[in-house]
Amino acid sequence: MLRDVTIGQYLPGNSLLHRLDPRSKINGVLFFMISLFVINNMVGYWLMVISAVGMILLSRIPLKYFLKGIKPLLLIIILTVILQALMTPGEIIWQWKFLHVTKEGLIQALFMGTRLVLLVSITSLLTLTTTPIVLTEGIEKMLNPFKVIGVPAHELAMMMTIALRFIPTLIEETDKIMKAQAARGADFESGNLIKRVNALIPILVPLFLSALKRAEDLATAMEARGYHGGEGRTRLKELHFAGKDYGAFGMAVILLLAAIATRVLF
């Protein structure tokens, strides 16, 4: 069952969004998020919803993948919406004992819900159209200028790559160990919390030891293959900024300006 967990939910495709440089996409997401927090009225929300829907259509990714991304966060979203509705003071339209819903509260709740859904959808859009490895490379390249102030850009990217490489391996291993322990009569499902945590120890200890062994082996193998940090290293696939990336950057700027305009004008 653990095997079904996938890391990075990349969906192969050939849309414009798939082909954009990861840096443009990360930048786009950042600008979109900032815009989401700039807007404060109905016009602004319409602007964001329409641009998000536009991008989703452009990616040609079926809607169900975005719903899948929202599902795990549904509880948090609903909770936030309810709290917003109940906590905002204003014109009361419904009351029961000490609980009351205001007109302003409803509007705020709707706004907050939209904001969260858009936030999740737009990040999903990034991970759905970009492979983890390319994403990592984009992050490395974007962090590169900050090397001068001591940000270890290459090292961070390397760690992310290794984590992405080994998460499935460790998940498989956990699965194996759990089955082995279950075969010896271990019970992970019943009992109180303490009992269940106790049952996990025989899984975590071997898993941890094996992870340490893997790390040691991997370090040796990397050294044997001539790894000596990011200095003087080249890449199989170099990223390059194309015309469409400048276009995407321009669009991101325009979106942010439009968001500011809605706030000022309406």
């Binding site: 983890p132 193998a221 790894y227």
Partner: peptide, 21 residues
């Protein structure tokens, strides 16, 4: 398992050559 570094076969195969610059 413990000597493959990257998340795809070709990226992994490239790892050593990338180190050569």
């Amino acid at each position: 398992d413990n000597q493959l570094v990257a998340t795809t076969v070709e990226e992994d195969c490239a790892f050593g050559v990338e180190n050569l610059g």
